[in-house]
Simulated assay, not measured.
Amino acid sequence: MSISVTTWHLEQTSPADLFPAQAPPAEQGVRIVRAEVPSPEFSRFLYTAVGGDIRWTDRLTWPYAQWAEFLGRPGTETWVAYEHGTPAGFVELAAEADGSVEITYFGLIPAFRGRRIGGHLLTYGVERAWDLAERWPGRAPAKRVWLHTCSKDGPHAMANYQRRGFRLYETTVTEEDEIPAPGPWPGAGPLTAGHTAGE
């Protein structure tokens, strides 16, 4: 059975476009740290833990070498949000040769959604996209930060991006085979209904 999937492409063209979200209270113990050592095991954990209930499936078939090659590319970064030492979500950045930085993935593990972490993590990730060149000698400063989201994603994702100052620049509609949500690992099944990535 096929379904219609709408994909929205959004962008910022200046650091001034960002509208920061308020950070969670200090007692919540939220901190954001860059995973500086490329780790396919850790990145795949984040990918499946965040995307298991919202049909993130495109990387499930990646072999170890493909994960390692992607994560090892200059200008690729993974920033992880922790709440009291436990991973809560992540934002993945990928610099491009034309001066763009793509937010390739962003979201929260279901148990951490609705806890005022998503807007803060997205804000931090966008700031790191804009200053990414400072951490990669020889790379030109970012000219644009962009991402895409789709109708399979959580219902609050689009609003979160727009609240942070992203502007819609392209919309496409495609037909795709309907795929059940795989859950975070085989046999786990979809997680609690009503939770959405990046909330």
Rank of each mutant, 00 (worst) to 15 (best):
I54H: 06
G89C: 05
F19L: 13
L132R: 13
T13K: 14
I32K: 02
V37T: 12
E134L: 15
Y64I: 03
I117N: 00
R128W: 06
R116K: 11
L121P: 01
L121K: 01
G85L: 12
T123V: 03
E92S: 12
L10I: 09
A133C: 13
A21D: 05
R31K: 06
E27H: 02
I54M: 06
W62G: 07
G75K: 12
S14G: 10
G75N: 11
E134G: 13
E11G: 07
F90N: 14
T104V: 15
V126Q: 12
E27F: 02
R31D: 13
S43I: 01
I117P: 01
E83V: 15
V37I: 13
A49P: 00
F106T: 09
R55E: 07
A133V: 06
L60V: 00
E83R: 14
A21F: 01
G125P: 10
E41I: 02
E41V: 04
T76W: 13
L60P: 00
P40T: 10
L108R: 06
T7D: 07
T123S: 13
T86A: 15
L10S: 06
I32P: 03
E102A: 15
T123W: 09
R116E: 08
F70C: 01
G52Q: 02
R55K: 01
A94C: 14
V33E: 11
D53S: 12
T48K: 04
V33G: 06
A88F: 14
R115S: 07
I117Y: 01
S39W: 06
R115A: 08
W67Q: 00
A133W: 11
L71A: 05
W62T: 03
F19G: 12
R55P: 00
E77F: 09
S14Q: 11
S100M: 11
V126W: 09
Q28P: 04
W79H: 11
E102I: 11
T57H: 05
V101H: 03
A68L: 10
W67L: 00
R115E: 06
A26K: 07
D98M: 07
A81I: 04
W79S: 04
L60T: 02
L122T: 05
G99V: 07
R44C: 03
F45E: 08
E102F: 10
H9P: 02
A95L: 13
R135E: 06
R59Q: 03
G114P: 03
S14A: 10
V91C: 13
F19D: 14
P24S: 08
S14P: 09
L93I: 15
S100I: 08
S100F: 12
S14E: 08
S39I: 10
T104W: 09
V91K: 02
P74K: 10
E27A: 08
W79G: 05
Q28G: 05
E41L: 07
Q12W: 08
W67T: 00
A95T: 04
G118M: 08
R73E: 11
